[in-house]
């Protein structure tokens, strides 16, 4: 955490600006890989520049039915350490194993409250191709848990009681390459459904693949990034309003929500963001964009929003909360997941 903070701070000073990721992304394409950080595992650092993905490309990459699964729910985020011996060829076996594990737990009474005694769980593992963006990224794995009555009638459709997915989008290549080959890195775990089931699924993964899960809290800077990135997609996906919510530590706490008109937000972003390369977004631009909005607020209300914490960012299609809850739309998926992948890797226990 400390590493990250100091890096964020130094990121705002222009001296280090163009050193990190932008180069990495570019050099990747030209196959020469400069030595980046020494001791990658001990010091991953936060990016100061991000690349926007082309929105048209997104539509074609992921199957629309599968995309619908990803954008339907509000996800709770966790981070996962690399999984030992996870094999894409074994997904069917994993489905069976996890079903059996849940049944066993249910018989011990843990999961019964969720489904009731007359129901059984059926787990399906599947892959969603197209979410991963580089050849080093592992394919996204989607898990769905259905409950169905033990004695199902013909018309009884199984009910989805829980879903979740593990993903990795543009993870730092030097981090991935530093892992031994028998490990699969899918650092972001999104879940939606009963907490007790999330817990059981996580403990099954921990037992089976010798990994560990932890909470994935975001920082206000991450939220600022997303506010800017989402605004930058205004031409692909019209925003009606960009909602930013701060909480000020007054007694009682004061919530301040600013809903900036979408077109105005984009115009402001456009003028904050230098046009040299429209697909690169620098941290200075993000900070300046948010600073402008905060200053506009200050000039009206004489209140320093910087005294509070940015807690939530939302547009019509997406929202993110600092506690690690996120809802996304197809256009934002790659950029958002790339940022979350980075956050997850930065918070890995070493």
């Amino acid at each position: 955490m400390d590493v990250r903070r100091s890096d964020v701070d130094s990121a705002t000073t222009p001296t280090r600006q163009r050193q990190s990721w932008r180069n990495s992304v570019r050099t990747l394409n030209t196959t020469t890989r400069p030595l980046f950080y020494s001791g990658v595992l001990t010091a991953p650092r936060v990016s100061t520049v991000r690349r926007r993905s082309n929105a048209h490309q997104i539509d074609n990459d992921v199957d629309p039915n599968q995309m619908a699964l990803l954008v339907k729910e509000k996800w709770e985020l966790s981070r996962v350490t690399p999984m030992y011996n996870f094999r894409y060829t074994e997904l069917k076996a994993y489905s069976k194993n996890l079903s059996a594990f849940l049944l066993e737990e249910k018989q011990q009474g843990t999961a019964a409250a969720v489904a009731g005694y007359d129901k059984v769980f059926a787990v399906t593992f599947s892959t969603i191709s197209g979410v991963a963006k580089t050849k080093d990224d592992a394919e996204t794995v989607f898990i769905q848990i259905n409950s169905k009555p033990v004695f199902a009638a013909a018309g009884d459709a199984p009910k989805v009681v829980w879903s979740g997915w593990l993903t990795c989008v543009r993870a730092a290549p030097q981090y991935l390459q530093s892992l031994p080959p028998e490990f699969v890195c899918l650092p972001v775990f999104c879940s939606s459904g009963a907490q007790s089931l999330t817990f059981l699924v996580q403990s099954w993964f921990e037992r089976t693949f010798d990994c560990s899960f932890g909470s994935l809290d975001l920082s206000p800077t991450d939220l600022q990034w997303l506010a800017a990135i989402w605004t930058s997609y205004h031409n692909e996906r019209k925003i009606r309003s960009l909602k930013l919510k701060w909480t000020l530590p007054s007694e009682p706490p004061l919530d301040v929500t600013m809903a900036v008109d979408g077109q105005d937000a984009w115009d402001l972003w456009d003028s904050t963001h230098q046009q040299e390369d429209a697909n690169d977004i620098y941290i200075e631009h993000v900070k300046r964009f948010l600073n402008c909005i905060e200053t506009h607020f200050y000039r009206h209300f004489n209140i320093h929003l910087s005294a509070g914490v940015l807690k939530r960012v939302a547009t019509e299609g997406a929202s993110v909360h600092i506690d690690g809850k996120v809802k996304i739309c197809p256009e934002y998926l790659p950029s958002t997941m790339e940022l979350l992948t980075e956050c997850a890797i930065l918070r890995m226990p070493l």
């Binding site: 309003s241 000020l248 007054s250 007694e251 009682p252 706490p253 004061l254 919530d255 301040v256 929500t257 600013m258 809903a259 900036v260 008109d261 105005d264 115009d267 402001l268 456009d270 003028s271 904050t272 300046r288 600073n291 402008c292 909005i293 905060e294 200053t295 506009h296 607020f297 000039r299 009206h300 209300f301």
Partner: peptide
């Protein structure tokens, strides 16, 4: 908002925003 952003400063166009303050007791906050 200032800081050298000229798009909005020069134009007469307003920067449309809805600001909401919320609290258990707003005046006390």
């Amino acid at each position: 908002g200032g800081s050298g952003i000229d798009t909005f400063i020069d134009s007469e166009r307003p920067f449309k925003t809805v600001v909401t303050f919320e609290s258990k007791s707003l005046l006390a906050s």
